[in-house]
Simulated assay, not measured.
Amino acid sequence: MDWTALRDRFRRAPLRPPPAPWRPVPAQKTGGITDVGFGRPSREEGLTAPDLLLVASSTGRGVFDCANGQRVYRDHGETYPDDSLVREGIGPLEGVQVTMAGLWGGGLRTTTDDGWAVHLVAPDWPAESVLLSKDDEPYRGSNWWHIHREEACELRASGFSPSGRTLVIATACDPRHLLQRGRKEIMTDPATWVDAYVRAWHTNEPADIGALFTDDAAYFTEPYARPWRGRDAIVRGWLEREDEGGPSAFEYEPVAVEGETAVVKGVTTYPDRVLSNLWVLRLDGEGRCAEFTEYWMEQPA
């Protein structure tokens, strides 16, 4: 790779607004920012989005609603915590340990489950630029946008919320870019989830199984069976009934998607039998399954 040419490419790239479905959210000014981190409300406060941003500065902490950029809570304490990478939440984040990123290190998510990625480059080090890409990478591909260049204010952190709905670019001066997209725009294609399920079917690795489900998911092995409830119970139940090595073949197609719910039709082939399957799954905004119900019937020989 020609690093000189690559550096020139990034240096010449014009600043561009992020593409749809991302929309900019004006955020209240906050000076002296040291670190930021995302959290989910510990209690319902009537906020319009589940993503909240905890911002720490030289004068205290504030919680911002990522849907509208408004500060919903503020205090003037704990400027320098004992653990600089984890802070105690305040207001709607009270009782939540928020992982932070900024002046003292740490990091936010750099990718989303549906192919968006954020990259830091420094063609004129130490000044950094932030690039946003979709199903591509800016070092070789072309599907990327130069969305921020560090100028007067030092970059503190950039990255996505765990839900993938929010992207923040925080500088020492303010949350300069706060970008949001709607829940329906990030629902994982059910095929992505089913492909991961089939991989876990073959590996029977607890980590692969657990990654498919939310903490409190329900797994119905039959429509009227008592479900396995919770990720740990699902992993145990799966391994107690595991198909060693998985089926010989599994063919499927999503036949309906409505909001968070998807219906998948499949055919499972084993050496000694063939099953017709119908799965009903409810996915959360992060691509994990909150409820899974399986209907199956053995095909005649």
Rank of each mutant, 00 (worst) to 15 (best):
M1A: 11
W3L: 15
L6G: 05
R11L: 10
R12G: 02
P14G: 02
P14K: 09
L15V: 03
W22R: 01
K29V: 12
V36T: 10
F38M: 03
R40Y: 09
S42P: 05
E45G: 02
T48P: 02
D51E: 09
T59C: 11
T59F: 15
D65W: 02
R71V: 13
D75P: 10
E78A: 12
L85A: 13
V86F: 13
R87S: 07
R87P: 05
G89T: 11
E94F: 14
G95S: 09
Q97W: 06
T99S: 15
L103Q: 14
E128N: 07
V130H: 10
V130W: 07
E150G: 07
A152D: 14
A157E: 06
S158H: 14
G159I: 01
G159H: 04
R165K: 12
T166L: 02
D174R: 15
Q180I: 06
M187L: 14
T188L: 11
R199Q: 09
I209F: 06
F220P: 01
F220L: 01
A225H: 08
R226W: 09
R226A: 09
A233K: 03
R236T: 08
W238L: 00
R241Y: 03
S248V: 15
A249V: 09
F250P: 01
P254Y: 04
P254F: 03
V255F: 04
V255W: 04
E258Q: 05
G259R: 02
V267R: 10
R273F: 13
L275D: 05
V280R: 03
G285A: 11
R288E: 06
C289N: 04
E291F: 03
